[in-house]
């Protein structure tokens, strides 16, 4: 790791001010993506600004029709949240199959979204639930937030403060784990909104990151059941191909994971 300067601000304003002042700063949330990258000398931030002690960034609340998870809330705290479990159990399930217990103590939802790994879990939930990402400067709709491989709409210095998930009528997440990294080899989040709209998002399948799956959405809109997907074919165009799975296999997994998620969602 290159030498860096570590900061631990206690307010959002201080964090943003530190960022503006530094030469080439980066924000640190749980650190479980950033620190390994820094250890391998693939990132060389002049300053590391730790968001983990900013109280305004931690907490879970349910207001009206939305589950709001503040950005620096750890995965562990999400798995323990009775409110989250009541509001959107699929989010809690997703969190329990994310990383491992030690990682879940440190990793945060905001950190995962800001990183936008193409095989990360949360982007699928955010996209399928049409969540809104709140930053220190604005609100960003899910569809606008994810901009391809490891890329988001966040501007330099912008900090995710919370994610607001509209509470759906039905939702579930089904994940085929990557055998080595335990990220998603392919995973699918299915949701049916209270107004009846079906949204399906797949992660781990495409190198450009999380994606919606229109063929499955159409079939499920017509008939919300696992068997409704029996006849459909998911195109393998543009899907990832590597030692752990061909594009055709990932296309199959999108369908199979979607079927299992629909079955789980009831």
């Amino acid at each position: 790791m290159y030498e860096t300067i570590y900061h631990r601000p206690t307010s959002l304003a201080d964090a943003a001010a530190l960022f503006a002042k530094a030469g080439d700063a980066t924000y640190l949330a749980g650190g479980h993506t950033l620190i390994p990258v820094m250890k391998q000398r693939l990132a060389a931030p002049s300053d590391v600004i730790d968001l983990g002690r900013i109280k305004d960034l931690i907490g879970i609340e349910v207001t009206g029709d939305a589950l709001i998870i503040k950005a620096a809330t750890t995965y562990y705290d999400i798995t323990q949240s009775a409110e989250a479990k009541r509001a959107i159990p699929a989010i809690v399930h997703l969190t329990t199959v994310l990383g491992d217990p030690a990682v879940r103590y440190r990793g945060t939802i905001g950190g995962s979204l800001a990183n936008n790994d193409p095989a990360a879990d949360y982007p699928a939930a955010v996209l399928a639930l049409d969540a809104t990402i709140t930053t220190n400067t604005r609100e960003i709709k899910a569809a606008d937030f994810f901009q391809g491989l490891m890329s988001t709409a966040l501007q330099p210095g912008e900090i995710i403060t919370a994610v607001s998930f509209p509470i759906p009528a039905k939702a579930a997440y089904s994940k085929m784990r990557h055998p080595a990294s335990r990220f998603a080899l392919t995973a699918v989040f299915v949701a049916k909104t209270k107004s009846g709209e079906v949204r399906v998002a797949a992660t781990g399948a495409s190198s450009s990151g999380v994606m919606r799956v229109p063929a499955i959405e159409q079939a499920l809109t017509a008939n919300w059941s696992a068997s409704a997907l029996d006849g459909i074919t998911v195109s393998s165009d543009g899907l990832m191909e590597d030692i752990h799975g061909s594009a055709a296999y990932r296309a199959n997994l999108i369908k199979v994971m979607a079927q299992r998620a629909v079955a789980d969602a009831g």
């Binding site: 085929m176 055998p179 080899l185 752990h244 799975g245 061909s246 055709a248 296999y249």
Partner: peptide, 11 residues
């Protein structure tokens, strides 16, 4: 015999 390979073999 990874899941991907087994699935492919089954196809």
């Amino acid at each position: 015999a990874t899941p991907g390979r087994v699935w492919t073999a089954m196809q």
